[in-house]
């Protein structure tokens, strides 16, 4: 996925050289991607840098790994205006992000969430938060804790009180 995204970005860069500027993004783990400015500005954060003329050298994308950044670039390519003519096809491609079946999906969605949040990409953030909401729908509190791997920091008394207060949500 990583190579495809990079090749796609640079090849389209060749054809429109001169009119479309290429931005260089560097992931946390040092991987470098060249992306068309028109595509990368789907990120509100990057758009801000471009508008402020701060995007002249390599842009470090902290907290985002090369693997995740490649997924983000793929997302940008698919969502560039005019890139996908068929709306249905796009929805189908997007649907791969809709379901969180196992741990690796969960980690991918987490990485994408953090990247979408950091880079401020509304469409991607929307898709990933919906996927998480869908995944926890109908789960009990304990199942949610397991899903997020979060341990309760309520003591026994507090937990009992909360359960009592919200009893209607715990009856089947």
């Amino acid at each position: 996925m990583s190579t495809a995204a990079t090749a796609d970005a640079s090849s389209s860069g060749d054809t429109t050289e001169g009119s479309v500027r290429l931005l260089t993004l560097q992931s946390e783990d040092g991987e470098v991607f060249e992306v068309k400015e028109t595509i990368a500005t789907q990120s509100v954060t990057i758009k801000g840098m471009v508008d402020d003329d701060c995007a002249t050298s390599t842009i470090p994308v902290c907290n985002v790994t090369g693997r995740t950044l490649a997924m983000v670039i793929e997302w940008w390519n698919k969502h560039e205006i005019g890139a996908v003519s068929n709306e249905k096809e796009l929805k189908e491609w997007e649907s791969q992000f809709d379901t969180i079946d196992d741990k690796s999906d969960r980690d991918d969605v987490y990485d994408l969430l953090m990247a979408a949040n950091y880079l401020n990409i509304p469409t991607l953030l929307d898709c990933c938060t919906s996927a998480v909401a869908e995944a926890i729908k109908g789960k009990s509190t304990d199942e949610m804790r397991e899903f997020f791997d979060i341990k309760s920091d309520f003591d026994e008394k507090e937990e009992d009180a909360l359960r009592k207060e919200n009893q209607w949500a715990f009856e089947n």
Partner: peptide, 20 residues
């Protein structure tokens, strides 16, 4: 944002009890 995507109040209450 995730909370906003939850359509059921029951899911919200259960999520609110995950941690402080």
């Amino acid at each position: 944002t995730i909370v906003d995507r939850l359509s059921s109040e029951i899911d919200c209450v259960r999520l609110s009890m995950v941690c402080k």
